[in-house]
């Protein structure tokens, strides 16, 4: 018997088992930190960063990536169409590097589309998904992660470690960037907030949450690569479109229509600002 198998410490290495916020009763809000000294936050953030790094190798985003890959490669629409016919800007069926090169101009639809918008477009066109169904629940919740979110996760993962390179060649791509830049700085609503109120300066934070200055490439990439991201609070994937939506909620704005031109423009501004930076997503978030 050459093989002498013994097991070591099963429980001790269950790294991710602490990501259990979703398991708390919904009503119980996390108690505010009551430690004495102010500016303790650096320590808290550092601790979380360590935790996040441990999880990065086993990011549950991979589960959704695998599901998305299966849909992309195997799912057939009416008439046998597949996502192999979907052109994400680099040719039909080409996924590698496509995510970090959107938003871009798509001549077939005469529109600038961000990655999420293009992927949904393809899933409707080739796989027979109904757009109104997708719009009914565009974002994941603890009951269900929609298929398009898994496909986005798969497509995003195929750009991991590649440089962000959203094109600025077509006049409409430039237009999207310019309009997005304006939307970013536009103050309105009962609180007079714009995106820039929170994301236009260095070193700011809300509570303990660091706020990247999205006007700077090295900071913009931090926000960019967080999404799609696995949210440990809740245990599901959320996308860039969700992030924009929820920012506008907190900005006290009305709700932006899912996959609308305004969001594509804003994403064009943010992505182009992050151009040249290396994409390390899909992300993992608290």
């Amino acid at each position: 018997m050459k093989q002498r198998l013994s097991t070591l410490m099963v429980a001790a290495v269950m790294t991710a088992s602490f990501a259990a916020h979703a398991q708390q009763p919904a009503k119980k809000a996390p108690p505010p930190a009551k430690a004495a000294a102010p500016a303790k936050k650096e320590g808290i953030t550092a601790e979380f960063e360590k935790f996040r790094e441990v999880l990065e190798e086993d990011n549950p985003a991979e589960l959704f990536e695998a599901k998305g890959e299966d849909i992309w490669k195997n799912k057939k629409g009416p008439g046998g169409a597949t996502m192999a016919q979907c052109d994400l800007g680099l040719g039909a069926g080409v996924v590698k590097g496509a995510y970090v090169q959107m938003p871009r101009w798509f001549a077939d639809v005469g529109q600038v589309m961000d990655a999420e918008r293009r992927i949904v477009h393809c899933m409707v066109k080739y796989l027979g998904y109904k757009e109104e169904d997708i719009r009914k629940q565009p974002f994941s919740n603890d009951q269900r992660t929609p298929d398009h979110v898994s496909v986005i996760t798969y497509v995003a993962a195929q750009s991991r470690n590649l440089k962000i390179a959203a094109p600025q060649k077509h006049a409409k791509e430039i237009e999207a960037y310019r309009i997005g830049k304006e939307i970013f700085a536009y103050r309105a609503g009962p609180y007079d907030f714009s995106c820039a109120t929170c994301h236009g300066d260095d070193g700011k934070r809300i509570r303990t949450q660091d706020l990247p200055n999205l006007r700077k490439p090295a900071e913009a990439v931090k926000a960019y690569q967080g999404w799609p991201g696995y949210r440990m609070t809740g245990g599901f994937m959320l996308t860039q479109q969700w992030r924009m939506n929820d920012c506008f909620r907190q900005q006290r704005f009305p709700e932006p229509t899912y996959l609308s031109d305004s969001i594509t423009a804003l994403l064009a501004y943010m992505t182009v600002t992050a151009n040249g930076q290396v994409y390390k997503g899909p992300g993992i978030k608290r």
Partner: peptide, 11 residues
Amino acid sequence: SRNPVFGFKVK
């Protein structure tokens, strides 16, 4: 947790 990760070491 939801979507758990387990690690084992086997000699």
